[in-house]
Design a protein around this nucleic acid. Structure first.
Length: 148
DNA sequence: CCTCGCTCTGTCC
DNA sequence: GGACAGAGCGAGG
């Protein structure tokens, strides 16, 4: 399912266990997502870009194939509330990882918005990277009022 | 602004 | 298995 947003379409795939991927993509790239979960995700994403401040904590994610450390990292990042930021380093200390490992995990996440990687920034307040789309990270944080 | 050492995951071979 | 790049941090110049 392709969900239209102000930053371009987001491609959604679901499995019986939950969302398998949600990320920016211009064209369909796999099986069409159908069913109640797909509809729920679509409504929630539209609400997000309509300026409501939804969380996505009740949306199940399909973590099949991910290591326990990555699951713990993603579940922790999901708890960062709308409009707030935390640093790679503080998350790393909390989870017993290295700061680089947190960055690597965020980079590899297929759960755009659902795991709000854009809310994870440098310890000194700079934004840090975003898989070559740092403008998108800045857009999202400004939209949430978490960045000047 | 810059460099360096530390650190270690993800991804390729 | 091994090699390398990378969404970091902190100290130092």
């Amino acid at each position: 399912m392709l969900i239209p947003t102000p930053i371009g379409p987001l491609w959604l795939e679901v499995s019986p266990r939950g969302v398998r991927r949600l990320e920016p993509a211009l064209f369909p790239r796999g099986l069409e997502a159908r069913g109640p979960l797909a509809e729920r995700v679509r409504e929630r994403v539209l609400a997000y870009f309509a300026g409501e401040k939804p969380d996505f904590l009740d949306i199940p994610l399909d973590y099949t194939g991910f290591s326990p450390k990555r699951v713990a990292l993603y579940e922790r990042v999901r708890l960062i509330p709308y409009g707030r930021t935390e640093s790679y380093g503080s998350l790393a200390r909390e989870l017993g990882l290295s700061p680089r490992a947190v960055g690597a995990g965020m980079r590899a996440s297929p759960f755009f918005l659902l795991v709000p990687a854009h809310r994870v920034i440098h310890a000194d307040g700079r934004l840090g990277g975003f898989a070559g789309q740092e403008g998108l990270k800045a857009w999202l944080l400004r939209f949430e009022g978490a960045w000047p």
